[in-house]
Design a protein around this nucleic acid. Structure first.
Lengths: 219, 219
DNA sequence: ATTAAAATTTAGACAAATCTAAAAAATACT
DNA sequence: AGTATTTTTTAGATTTGTCTAAATTTTAAT
């Protein structure tokens, strides 16, 4: 099934409710229900007709096609399950569930979840005042093998370091991971991970443990 | 705190992550991270600067203002709590939580909630195939006098209706009966019956036939 | 210190969703 | 039936977020 914008979904859902049975829905009725202008309704009707979600002849009103009804039911299902969740789990009053503001919702969700301090990836969750546990930064030499991390600080500004950073394109924010650690010469083999765009990994290269200790990463 | 579009939020969150510490973020870095074009980034930066969410001088990179950081933390909080919920309650794998599709989400939510058949207003919830129970319900205006029934659905969510429900404590599942119908002004006198147990009746009150038509009951 | 390359911004365009004002069609009213 | 009123549609504009291509600024390299 295709994808619809929030606006399209709103129109579809509202038409479904207005066209009890097989009645045809009028432009004005729909405009009023959606608090919009008749002209906007007409515009949208053309689009929904083009997507075969409804039957529509100019000046004749409209009704959902079978496809449109399917979409409507899917939308209604989502909205009602969501409202059930708000009332049943987050303890909103049953007549509040329509107009729950984002902030309220998040605070209740936080409460419901038991004020977790970090998300499934281990990233810290700020509290409602924006306070967040300092995500611990560790130096690159201490990073576990194969664990991607983000370069967040470089404390040594020696020529050697700057040379390395520039040459290997290690920048703040770059994602890196360690491929291997070599005990015998205290070097580590690392690799930059490009963003999704360019998903082909860069070649790996080695740097000394000494230098690595000056590069800080966060998970 | 003001309101931001999804797009703006994405930019703010991403800048926050890129500018670990007090570094300045570059146009290209941001464009790559967001899978968009540098020109689009510049456009958005102008907007965010106008909203005082970041410091920005052309060609000089940008960093979030204090206000911008506050907004970023709020966004991050929401996203991480949501991911925590997906993983902890809906049992998504920790590495799936980023890219959960709407359909999957709703099906898991349905499962988590125990496949409820109606929402907090008593409206039936379609199943994943779009099938919906239509239990025989009649509207309160059509209920016979002195015949107790159970409120199972309220279809009109106008302010007037919500006011009435709250004031008179009419809730889904409440037992009601009609004491009299007044033809002359199209009003009906109704009374809530407490549970069968406590049969001490509440005071009765009148509501318009018009409103009553929007309250559905089952016998 | 110029020049070449890379990064960034501007200019101009487009799609989505809305609006106002005006035109056209349908309906209601003598 | 013929006019007035209401409803609906069209035309043209606006806002948001994006894009491409060209211009500009910064940085790197000889």
């Amino acid at each position: 099934m295709l994808n619809f914008s929030t606006s399209e979904e709103n129109y579809i859902k509202t038409i479904f409710h207005l066209q009890n049975g097989q009645n045809t829905v009028t432009t004005n009725a729909l405009a009023e229900k959606l608090s919009t202008r008749p002209a906007s309704v007409t515009d949208m009707m053309k689009k929904l007709k083009a997507k075969k979600l409804l039957h529509y002849q100019p000046y004749q009103g409209f009704r959902l096609s079978n496809e449109g009804k399917k979409v409507a039911l899917d939308i209604i299902r989502r909205h009602r399950l969501w409202e059930y969740f708000l009332a049943e789990k987050l303890k909103f009053k049953w007549d509040e569930v329509h107009v729950v503001a984002e902030d309220q919702l998040i605070d209740k969700l936080d409460e419901y979840l038991g004020y977790p301090k970090s998300d499934p990836h281990g990233d810290p969750i700020p509290d409602s005042l924006g306070k967040m546990e300092n995500s611990e930064q560790i130096n690159l030499a201490e990073l576990a093998v194969n664990k991607p991390a983000e370069v967040c600080r470089v404390v040594n500004q020696s020529d050697e370091m700057l040379e390395l950073l520039q040459h290997k394109k290690i920048t703040i924010g770059a994602r890196v991971e360690i491929k291997r650690k070599f005990e015998f010469d205290h070097s580590i083999e690392i690799r930059l991970r490009q963003s999704k765009r360019n998903s082909s990994d860069q070649p790996s290269f080695s740097i000394s443990e000494q230098l690595a200790k000056n590069i800080f990463v966060s998970l």
